[in-house]
Design a protein around this nucleic acid. Sequence first.
DNA 1: CTGAAAGCGCTAACAT
DNA 2: ATGTTAGCGCTTTCAG
Lengths: 334, 334
Amino acid sequence: MVTLKHLAEQLNVSVSTVSKALHDSQEISADTIKRTKELAKILNYQPNKVALSLKNNKTKTLGVIVPNILNHFFAKVLLGIEKEATKKGYDIIICNSNESFDKELQSIDVLGNGSVDGFIMSIAEETQIRDENNHINKILKQNLPVVLFDRVSDKIQCDKVIIDDFEASYKATQHLLSEGRKHIVLLSNIEELSVGKLRVNGYLKAISEAKSYTNKPQVIYINNNEIETQVNQLFQQYNDIDGVLSIDNTSGVVALHKALKNGYKIPEDLSIIGFSDENILPFTDPKLSTVSQHALDIGSTSVTMLINRIENGNQNQHLTKHINTTLELRGTTK
Amino acid sequence: MVTLKHLAEQLNVSVSTVSKALHDSQEISADTIKRTKELAKILNYQPNKVALSLKNNKTKTLGVIVPNILNHFFAKVLLGIEKEATKKGYDIIICNSNESFDKELQSIDVLGNGSVDGFIMSIAEETQIRDENNHINKILKQNLPVVLFDRVSDKIQCDKVIIDDFEASYKATQHLLSEGRKHIVLLSNIEELSVGKLRVNGYLKAISEAKSYTNKPQVIYINNNEIETQVNQLFQQYNDIDGVLSIDNTSGVVALHKALKNGYKIPEDLSIIGFSDENILPFTDPKLSTVSQHALDIGSTSVTMLINRIENGNQNQHLTKHINTTLELRGTTK
DNA sequence: CTGAAAGCGCTAACAT
DNA sequence: ATGTTAGCGCTTTCAG
C-alpha cells in the first residue's frame, strides 16, 4: 500500500506538501504538483480510506440490515441501494437479520462502532412481533441517522420509505371487483408484519365499499411451511372462488398452480393478483398479474434520504416517502 | 461516541491506563480495572473500529463481489458468507458487478484502498468472456488474498471454492440414462461461463460412455430473453425427447411447464433435472429434481479459506476446495 | 512555496 | 501501578 510518506520520500518533500499537491492546493508550485501527481500515478497511490475515515470521522459507508437476503424483494431493494450508494461514492455493509431480533441488535451494535455513517434497515419479523424499538432509537440518539424502509414502526422517529400498502391492495381488490368477481379471497403468510396488516385493511375497505358484493371478506393466513396444502384445501373446500389477492411473495404462484390443477380456467373462472416480483414470471403460465413494488426505487430513495441526512445534518423534520406501486395486469386477470 | 479519552478524564487516569485496564493487563491494579470497566459499561464504551483498523492495518472486513445479487444461487452463497463471517467477527462489504468487467474492476479499486483485508469473488460473465485477469492478479500481488468461488480462472493463482460441475452433470446425465432415456437434451443459457462449459462436458462424457444410447448428444444454448419460446419450439420440433438436463437456474422450470403444456406426462414420458435451487420448488408441480449445489457451504468455506489466508499468511500452497453436489430426485424423475 | 506539528482513537514500547 | 511517547495515514493550521 503506497502512502503519502512513500511519495514524500521519493520526491524529497514533506508529507504535507504531497498532500496539498494532490489536492491542487494553491500554496504549491505548479511544478511540484505535476511531479507529485505523476509519481502518484506511476505508483498507483490511493488514499487510505481508513485513515480518512478516522480523520474525518466519516466512513462513507452505509450499514444495511435486511430481514432476509433470500427474499427477492429485499434482494432487489439491496440492488437499488448498492447502485445508488456506489454512484454517490459510498460503500455498503450488509447484514442479514434473518428475521431475528437478536441478530438485528447485534448487527447494529457491531456497525455502531464508527463503522458506518448511518443505517438503512427493514425491521425483522421478530422485532415487529415483539414491538421492540429501543435498539433503533438508541442509535438515533447517538446521532447516527436511520432510514427505515418497507417494514417500519410508528414508535421510531426517522426518515422512512414505504409503499402505500393499503392503497396498493385497495386498488388491486377494486380491480378484481371491477371484473365482477363475487368471491374474492385474500391470501397471506405475513400476518405479523406491518405491511401485511395494511394490505389486509386495503382489501377489507375495498370489499366493504362494494355495494354489489354480497360475500363476506375472507382473509386466509397460511403457514409458510404448508402453503401448498393449505391453498389446495381452499380450492377443494370452496368451488366458487373467482378472485385471489395474494399479498405475499409466493402464495400467488401457488394459488395459480393449485387452481389450474383443480380445473379452474384462468382468468376466465378466476383472477389472481400477487405481490410477487417479476422474477417469478418465467415460472408461471399464464403470467401472474402483480402489484409491482418498485423495489429498486425503494432502495435508491432510501440511499438518497440517508446520505442527505448524513451530509446535511439533522435540522429538518423527518420525512416519509411513498413509492408508487403499479398494478401490472398480465395473464391471470381479465 | 465514547472514547478512551472520555473514560480517562472521568477516571483521572491516562488514556493508556484505561486501554490496558480494559484489556485486563497485569500492569494495572485490580481496583483500577474494576472502576474502568464499570464506567465503560455505564457509558457503553465501544472501541472505535476505524481507529483499530488504522492501528492494526487490518479492517476485519471482507470484500465480496458477486456477479448478480438477484440470482438466487449467489444470494444463497452470500447468506453463507454473511453467517460465517459474522461468526468469525468479520464484516462484509458487498458489491454487485452486474456481470460487468468495468464494475468489477471499479469495486476492486474502491475496496483495495485498505477497506478490506481480502476478497471473495465470483467472476463476472463479461470478465470471463474477455478472459481478463490482471485486475485480480494485481490485488494478489499487493498481498491482498482472494478466494474465487464458482466462476474461476486457471490464470489466477489463488484459493478457490468450486463444485465439481463436470462430475455433477455427468452424474445427473447418468441418472437419466439409467432410467432408459433415449433422447436427452441439455439446455443452457450460460454458454460463456466456465461452469457452463464444464457441465456440458460432463453431459457429453456420460452420453459418449453409454453404449446403448444411439442418439447424438444435443446441446441447446438458449437466449436469456427467449427461454420460453425457444424451449417451447424445442418440444414442438421433436416429439421424442424423454430427458432434459438443464444446467442453469431457470430453464429447467420452463422446460417442465412447456413439456406439460405440450402434453408430456412427467416423469413417465420425460424426466427433467435442473441446477436450480430449492427456492423454486413452491413454483413447480411436480417438484423439480435438481442438482443441489450447496451454496451455503460454498459461502462458508470461502470465508474460512479467506480468513485463514488473512490471519496465517501466504506461506502455503493455494488450495482448491470442492464442494459436494447431491442429486435431489423429486417429482420430475423416475 | 514548503515544512513542522497536532490530532482523529487506539495500542504498545518505554519510562517513571 | 501508572504515565509518556510514538505511530498507524491523512489533513490542516500555523510557521518559516
